[in-house]
Write a protein that binds this DNA or RNA. Sequence first.
DNA 1: ATCGTAATTTAGTCGCACCTAAAAATAATA
DNA 2: TATTATTTTTAGGTGCGACTAAATTACGAT
Lengths: 221, 221
Amino acid sequence: MELSTSEENYIKAIFKITERTGEKVSTNALAEEFSIKAASVTDMVQRLGEKSLVHYEKYKGVSLLEAGESVAKQLIRKHRLWEVFLVEKLNFSWDEVHEVAEQLEHIRSPKLTSELDAFLNYPKYDPHGDPIPDKEGRIQARIKLNLSKVQKGRIAEVIGVEESEDDFLRFLSRIGVQLGTKLEVLDRFEYDGSVVVQVDDEREVTLSEKVATNLWVTLEQ
Amino acid sequence: MELSTSEENYIKAIFKITERTGEKVSTNALAEEFSIKAASVTDMVQRLGEKSLVHYEKYKGVSLLEAGESVAKQLIRKHRLWEVFLVEKLNFSWDEVHEVAEQLEHIRSPKLTSELDAFLNYPKYDPHGDPIPDKEGRIQARIKLNLSKVQKGRIAEVIGVEESEDDFLRFLSRIGVQLGTKLEVLDRFEYDGSVVVQVDDEREVTLSEKVATNLWVTLEQ
DNA sequence: ATCGTAATTTAGTCGCACCTAAAAATAATA
DNA sequence: TATTATTTTTAGGTGCGACTAAATTACGAT
């Protein structure tokens, strides 16, 4: 079935909000997401319901049916593959990619997607550390958390940043932190939120709370 | 000014048809191009006229104004850059690229275009041998003609193919012909349209009329 | 359990990009 | 030149995806 860009965006948003809240998605939540009016959302979700992409009951919110879920996963796959491409091949920084990837994800061409995947060497995660669904929509989940939440003694691997201002990225490169870097949390100071870490079993560095909350990591084991 | 994909497509088509015919473009010609009705075209060219992208007079056809021409050239630039990308990096063959490039050319991101250009090493021509406009829309013209039209004694450089069936591409690679190959026309047989060429100052090969008309070349000097 | 507020839907409108049918202008031909 | 044929435009209509205003439903507090 051929979907419009708008329809695709609704489906992706429903997926995203469901993932976050676990609940059926309200018209208001979608209206909020797109900065449009709830009445417009009602229109659209009714149409998506007729196409059997979502389950919709008046006043009770909307959830994805299987067909819709598969559409959402393909979109996320394309979005994240393009993000990898933009960062690795075209010198985009982590926070410049989103807007362009929003456009690129709607390009229709199975060959384009699979060849891009191969060209990028079948990446498993995007530059923000989020997993890239495979052709069948399967997602390699891993727990993604803030460095500021990691307990003393644990070893964490850097998988992304929250916001990537130039200045912050320069700071990271100066202390030798990049994607894949292992950080052992040696100590945490609750009173100012700072953390002492050992970078790649070598240097010891103290990171401010701001830095720590900007770093996405995953735990070893 | 933000243009819709449709508006962009009209502008590109007007540019293309003007280039081919040299005349003002008729509503019918555009209707033909998009397989839609002339009445719909009238609607659109009126809107484009109000936006000062085209010059339009009732019953007299339409032509691009400067603003429109610049839009057209940027679209052609993006289209051809993407074609190079698809062929060189993603293993698309020369005749698979058009449809996807039609979609990709509408992506809005100046950074994407300029970085892609750099990533591809500032190509001057696309896989069909057509020139890629630079950032300012300037086009490096070169005369593109069929190998079947080249006079005896002249040296021609292969710059593209018309249709690229797998079988034809395999044949080319077998006789050592690829983009950039120099062909000296040793002889031409008018009665069956075949041509005898010397490939890269080495092998001598006879090409059928069908092969010769499928090869786009440019002349030395 | 009821009442008031917040959330949601319905009804009607608008621009875009197409359509059909009919009218008008232009071009071709006798 | 007059008539016919073709091209183009106008007028009015449709679905999409947004809107506003008004009606309806659901929910939280008393």
